[in-house]
Amino acid sequence: MKLAEQRGMATVYEPAEDSRLLATAAIDRIDGGRVLEVGVGSGYVADRIAAETPADVVGCDINPEACRRTRSAGIEAVRSDLTHAFLADSFDAVVFNPPYLPTPPEEEWDDPLEYALSGGEDGRRVIRPFLSDLGRVLRPSGRAYLLVSTLTDVDAVVELADEAGLGAEAVDEASFPFERLVVLEITHANR
């Protein structure tokens, strides 16, 4: 039994303001096709996209408990590391609310919920490999919706997208006491 289970702690990230902002931004812009939510967690965003758009939604997560919850919500679930288990040109849209809180190494602790929150020292530990594989699975006209925080440095994320041959533009945002959350719409740069 894992430590988190013994303590009766949550092992899946529960939907919060960031999830709701991302869901709304995605629903307003997705009009069908096949959609992947990366790091699907509780299944909240995937479930809303499935309910409020005509899209076919698949969720993936590295956490087995998140996969089980997503499947229980009636969403197709795949256990995978980011987009690495999906064929090229598979998706019209990809949605991701990544772990983004900058976390010094000495404060990292090893349980599934921490993994769902921490973005490493600069907050971009998971965003970096996500952006480097995103262009492969996104169809030529595909779009991705990535939630980022000012704590994670939005400009640095836009630069990472650029390095991966992708264009990124803020399409929605919301301000909170300690951060501003931004939804970036990411496309192939040549579009």
Partner: peptide, 18 residues
């Protein structure tokens, strides 16, 4: 999983079909 999911899945190691 539905069988149609196979259309979009690949081996994470070499990206070959399954």
């Amino acid at each position: 999983m539905k069988e149609t999911l196979l259309d979009i899945l690949c081996c994470p190691l070499d990206k070959a079909e399954l």
